[in-house]
């Protein structure tokens, strides 16, 4: 009787900025095409629904050794993940992720940010990191760090207006991303400084 394919190994999750990718090592069988299927189990299924598993249709019988599980990891609870190898009609045992995965462990990076001075107006352009993200933007007049101001930006459609600037003055800005659903923030971006139009004498 033909042997069953081995269960996939080295199952792990790469999770950055609330995008969660499940990966595993390929099952190598000379001259054969091995396909994989992925299932997940939330804490709800484990505790209230007889430990049932739910297949991810986009990752059923695929040849790739990764699966984007972001859409299904949509609650801040502990998830189980498992992968199986199929070789024709023969099916391996399930390989299961070691330990649980909770999205609150995702690594958060600071947003890509561009600070703009347009006349006397301080503006910022922020990278769209997805619907789960907001941004905490801190800005201050150079030399007056203790009078730092904050703006929470939820819509990053384009150039966001922060404030007006005193003529000729230099202003600095830094930002961090924040995910309300897991109540965590990234580190701050590099500080960027720009200068308002006009010369400072206008204010004397």
């Amino acid at each position: 009787e033909e042997a069953l394919p081995p269960a996939p190994q080295n199952i792990s999750i790469l999770s950055t900025n609330m995008k969660h990718i499940l990966t595993w090592s390929p099952v190598i069988i000379q001259g054969e095409t091995v396909r994989y299927s992925v299932e997940f189990q939330g804490e709800y299924e484990r505790v209230y629904a007889n430990e049932s598993w739910i297949p991810i249709s986009e990752c059923s019988l695929i040849t790739a050794t990764l699966c984007n599980i972001t859409e299904d990891i949509s609650a801040t609870v502990a998830y189980n993940l498992r992968v199986r190898a199929d070789l024709g009609a023969r099916r391996s045992e399930w390989g299961t992720l070691k330990g649980f995965f909770n999205r609150n462990t995702t690594s958060l990076t600071p947003p890509v940010m561009k600070v703009i001075a347009d006349g006397y107006h301080l503006l910022v352009e922020l990278e769209d990191m997805g619907p789960a993200f907001q941004f905490r933007v801190l800005y201050w007049k150079k030399g007056q760090e203790r009078r730092m101001q904050q703006k929470v930006v939820k819509e990053v459609s384009s150039v966001v207006h922060l404030d007006t600037m005193e003529a000729g003055a230099e202003y600095c800005v830094k930002a961090q991303s924040y995910v309300e659903a897991i109540n965590r923030s990234s580190s701050f971006s590099q500080t960027q400084c720009v200068r308002a139009q006009g010369d400072t004498s206008m204010w004397l």
């Binding site: 939330g42 804490e43 209230y48 007889n50 297949p55 991810i56 949509s74 609870v77």
Partner: peptide, 29 residues
């Protein structure tokens, strides 16, 4: 909802089941 509803809502549609799971786990949290 957590004790009496979601577990009895399994359907033949995998997409619907995944969304129910998402809601159920959010409710649990």
């Amino acid at each position: 909802y957590v004790d009496k509803v979601f577990k009895h809502c399994r359907t033949e549609d995998s997409y619907v089941n995944r969304k129910i799971s998402s809601i159920a786990n959010s409710f649990l949290s």
